[in-house]
Design a protein around this nucleic acid. Structure first.
Ligand SMILES: [Mn+2]
Ligand SMILES: [Mn+2]
Ligand SMILES: [Zn+2]
Ligand SMILES: [Zn+2]
Lengths: 156, 156
DNA sequence: GTAATATTGATATTGAATTTCAATTTGTGA
DNA sequence: TCACAAATTGAAATTCAATATCAATATTAC
């Protein structure tokens, strides 16, 4: 299905339900609960562990493996991105709208992450791919450094 | 020390020796052996395991931990890059000359890796950083997709 | 409802990265 | 050359996130 910009939750739910139907998977309480928690999670780029801890408060019986598998499912049906910022644990974030793409500035001081999308960069990436006869499916651009407040602290 | 473009091995060796002196580390046979093997390694982007296996043939007594630690040392003194292409194992490659930087096209079909450097992309990255008041120290751009021969195979 | 199939969650396993530690090697300076 | 302090080595143990296992349970199609 087509997700419009700033996909409301109901549309996401529909997309998930369609995927479950298509793949002959099953709707479960757990998937609903994790769905709600994930798409309402206040922070960006949550780890499995973080989401699991949050979920356990309301649902002490939920298992880590289920959270892990459900986030993989969201990724599979393109409702979530999996990210790896080099700290050795995968992070997940909702896809904001169908086909969305963005990249990241990552502060190595405080861990702050800023998202951006730059058309020029995308354009030149495509050029590089073409030049090398590559069919690019996705890409990852991460800028590592210090955010303004960490720069200030360091200058002192 | 300043490395000139296409740093010859002797210059790299000097740089390493200087770093060892500065940090009050010690010169060892093992470090020399690993140095030789790493900077002469025929493939790009070698894993610790791969280099270790190669080294063991001539030096059965060398330990995995030593190879691991020595590659970290090369990284520390900026003679090597550590890469992570998403297959769960770190890879190392020689820095070609001081301050060198390049990015990667990665074939998810056959694992082929093509290196590139694109000044425009670097330039726009800097712009993005500036816009967000970020002091960027390094960045990583990876384009994932299919190389020409894998595209051909898939089209059949 | 029944049967087939998928899911769950506790637990075990995997595998790369990293640490530990006793034995050894190296650099320093008398 | 010698002795001491400090760093290094290599085998083995540990860590830790990711993933697999599997019996019990839940869901779906008929
Ligand atoms: Mn993001
Ligand atoms: Mn490279
Ligand atoms: Zn910061
Ligand atoms: Zn290929």
């Amino acid at each position: 299905m087509q997700l419009s910009k700033a996909t409301p939750k109901s549309e996401r739910k529909k997309a998930l339900d369609e995927y479950i139907l298509k793949k002959r998977l099953k709707s479960t309480k757990q998937r609903d609960i994790i769905f709600d928690e994930f798409f309402n999670y206040p922070g960006q780029h949550v780890t499995v562990e973080e989401l699991y801890e949050k979920l356990k408060k309301q649902n002490p019986k939920i298992g880590y493996a289920t959270v892990y598998r459900t986030l993989k499912l969201f990724k599979e049906c393109r409702l979530a991105f999996e990210r790896n910022f080099g700290d050795g644990r995968a992070r997940y974030e909702p896809v904001k709208f169908e086909g969305e793409h963005h990249d990241h500035l990552i502060c190595i001081g405080c861990g702050r992450i800023i998202e951006f999308a730059n058309l020029r960069i995308e354009q030149y990436s495509r050029e590089v791919a073409k030049l090398n006869d590559f069919e690019v499916l996705n890409h990852k651009l991460e800028l590592y450094g210090y955010c303004s407040s960490c720069t200030r602290k360091r200058d002192k």
